[in-house]
Nucleic acid binder design. Sequence first.
DNA 1: GAACAGGTGAAGT
DNA 2: ACTTCACCTGTT
Length: 276
Amino acid sequence: MSKIFTLCDKNDLSLDNTFDCGQCFRWDKVSDTEYVGIAMGAAARVYQDGNVMRIETSGADEEAWRKYFDLDTDYNTIASTIQTDDFMRDAISFNRGMRILRQEPWEALCSFIISQCNNIPRIKKIVHSLCERFGDCVNLGGTDFFAFPPVDKIAVLMPGDLAFLRAGYREEYILTAAYSVNSGVINFDELMRDSADDARKKLTALKGIGNKVANCVLLFGLGKTDAFPVDTWMKKTAQFYPYAADGKHFGKYAGIAQQYIFNYARKNMSNILKSY
DNA sequence: GAACAGGTGAAGT
DNA sequence: ACTTCACCTGTT
């Protein structure tokens, strides 16, 4: 049977700014007050109920979900440290209630390999297809969800076995990553203890993993808030707001600043161009 | 048909 | 160190 927990006050978690800010690919909007998805092998329905946010889940305990939603971190305090100018004031205000999800490292690595030079609908489609084929099926409220496949399920595959994904040249990168993680060449526990610089070096040693994807893995999969991914949107923004391409400027919470800037730019670029 | 999409690596200055 | 380009695929 499913269980229901209260997560937090409604002001401390914005569903759209968290699930639709480009950091994750496995949550879908059901209504203005509800998303459904799957993480840590547990399906879930996250929804607003009056003044609080609640979660109904097929598994994973309350503690695991609290960690997943990073609920022990005070984002208001972090926001004040990265609010260095008017642009950031507006970006933070736009993203009120966003939280950086603590995703599983292997899922983050594989997902952001798929993300390269791709649009979000197709990323989601490819990831879903991978899960449907190799992940465990979990039911919640009559709907089937598919967990992200464990790395050993992918590490036994040969080149060509993922052709059905239509992931193109990214297939080789997925397999390389799976072999490396499964064999222990890449050890996430170790990367978690490493500095961001050390962990980044180990990740970019893999074929198909450059700085951008590695930084996404550090930020979204390994909890390193100082990792600062710079993608095309950040580069575009940096043309008129240079700090968007400067990972040093925002200090230890640079990654969170990045996500505020990224989502602000991606959703609102035309208005931003008029304002700055 | 061309250009583009949350990049990367190899080869060329 | 910086620039250019091919790489799979799907959509506009």
